[in-house]
Design a protein around this nucleic acid. Structure first.
Length: 426
RNA sequence: GGAGAGAUGGCCGAGUGGUCGAAGGCGCUCGCCUGCUAAGCGAGUGUGGGGUUAAAAGCCCCACCGAGGGUUCGAAUCCCUCUCUCUCCGCCA
């Protein structure tokens, strides 16, 4: 959410941002509602001030045992008027709130202008794509051959877009989680969080999944709870309605969680394999920073996520999302895309974003500078570090051998009891 | 799931219809005093919104005593619903 006063005073900036994003939102509606709101608000407040004055007089009279019938009559009339104004006001206010909730963040000046995904800008290439002496297999074939991924039984026990990891597959998933957590905690200085995987509506409003993206979420029937689509939600909301201390910033958290996504509207995309699942694991990085340091911290966050791929020896590239592809609440986003040999393409494995104060305003996360009177909103950032399932895809495909086995990257071996490769069970 | 108790400012805690944004204490900030980083004295110390302003400060006004609704001329105080916390019982990894 953006600051209503900022919007009011910078309507041209808003219009330009919406145009760059190719978003169609009625800005004039806002201006009309806002003008109405302020007019009614000041009328109402004048009435209230009048009422408060008369009330004081009445209480004086009453305490001296004098008659206040006339004043009470006047007050009755004022109260009736105030009540109806109040109703009108709250209607307008909720309309304004709805409008503001629909308004996306303003892209940062450094974000390239573009219409869609095709105009994202590659800013970095890392690693060498593996050269195979045979046609590389897709990860689902490798996984089934090695009996580490079981799609059939997952479909039986749950449904499509679910998978069962078995044996070394399950161990690999667990190893990756531990490896990434250890890296970010011990080397990058993040604090580990193990959050609830279920959250309430307020949290989802705070991080801007609601109200716009309800159809992407799993809701628990009969409860007010939702399954989290990412650990970003519980971790960012850790400090909802809090005032942080300047000296504690930046706060850096890393959290493992399962993530649940309805994937509505993605029928037919990535139907095979584990690229797109209803449930997947992810290690997420979240930062709370001062406004002036958030872009520096974004670069740091990106580097922390990249290091995972570097240590695993997986080739990747980094792209800056253009304005047309930028997520709703983000001011700037880097995607890290890992090389997937069977598809001969790079696939997103991490998305690192600076939300500036967009989430902080919704979630009311502030900080106070030393000696300052006023609280300010923090900036929030987050990024995957990394998506576990897609990392498994990358490992299986990039490290596959001609005989169908898969070499384990060295850094993972201590997490897998020292084994060097996954082979077909005898 | 059943029964009961509670939710007030950074913290503790008073306040059962009118002068309450809220006593008192603690903490914190500033000042004074004191021949030691103590004690004492004085003042200040919530958040959000609207107006005034080029802007800020300041000033004026409004709202907020877990949340939402209601009664009333008037609600922290009365009524209803919800949420959370605590105690006991039941169930349970």
């Amino acid at each position: 959410m953006l600051d209503i006063r900022f919007v009011r005073k910078n309507i041209d900036v808003i219009k330009e941002a919406l145009e760059k994003r190719r978003a169609d939102i009625d800005v004039d509606l806002f201006l009309r509602l806002d003008a109405q709101r302020r007019k009614i608000l000041s009328e109402l407040e004048q009435l209230n001030a009048q009422r408060n004055k008369l009330n004081t007089e009445i209480s004086h009279l009453k305490r001296h045992g004098e008659d206040a019938t006339g004043l009470i009559q006047t007050l009755k009339e004022i109260s009736v008027k105030a009540k109806s104004l109040d109703e009108t006001l709250s209607q307008i206010q909720s309309q304004i709130q709805d409008w503001l909730m629909q308004l996306p963040n303003i892209p940062h000046a450094s974000v390239p202008v573009g219409k869609d995904e095709s105009e994202n800008v590659v800013v970095k290439m890392w690693g060498e794509k593996p050269a195979f002496s045979f046609p590389p297999k897709p990860h689902w074939e490798i996984g089934e051959f090695l009996k580490i991924l079981d799609f059939k039984r997952a479909a039986k026990i749950t449904g499509s877009r679910f998978v069962v990891y078995r044996g070394l597959g399950a161990a690999l998933e667990r190893a990756l989680i531990n490896f990434m957590l250890d890296l970010h905690v011990k080397r990058h200085g993040y604090t580990e969080i193990f959050p609830p995987f279920v959250v309430n509506e307020e949290s989802l409003f705070g991080t801007a999944q609601l109200p716009k993206f309800k159809e992407d979420l799993f809701k628990i029937e009969g409860e007010k709870y939702y399954l989290i689509p990412t650990a970003e939600v519980p971790v960012t909301n850790l400090h909802r309605d809090e005032v942080l201390k300047e000296e504690d910033l930046p706060l850096k958290y890393v959290a493992y969680s399962a993530c649940f996504r309805a994937e509505a509207g993605s029928y037919g995309r990535d139907v095979r394999g584990i690229i797109r699942q209803h449930q997947f694991n992810k290690v997420e990085l979240v930062k709370f920073t001062t406004p002036e340091s958030s872009y520096e911290e974004l670069e740091g966050l990106l580097a922390d996520a990249e290091e995972v791929l570097q240590m695993l020896g997986l080739p990747y590239r980094v792209v800056t999302l253009c304005t047309g592809d930028l997520g709703f609440g983000a001011a700037k986003t880097y995607d890290i895309e890992v090389w997937v040999p069977s598809q001969e393409t790079y696939r997103e494995i991490s998305s690192c974003s600076n939300y500036e104060a967009f989430q902080a305003r919704r979630a009311n996360i502030r900080f106070r500078r030393k000696g300052a009177k006023k609280n300010e909103l923090v900036h929030t950032l987050n990024g995957s570090g990394l998506a576990i399932g897609r990392t498994v895809v990358a490992i299986l495909e990039n490290y596959q051998q001609k005989d169908g086995s898969v070499i384990i990257p060295e850094v993972l071996r201590p997490y897998l009891g020292g084994i060097e490769k996954i082979e077909a069970a005898a």
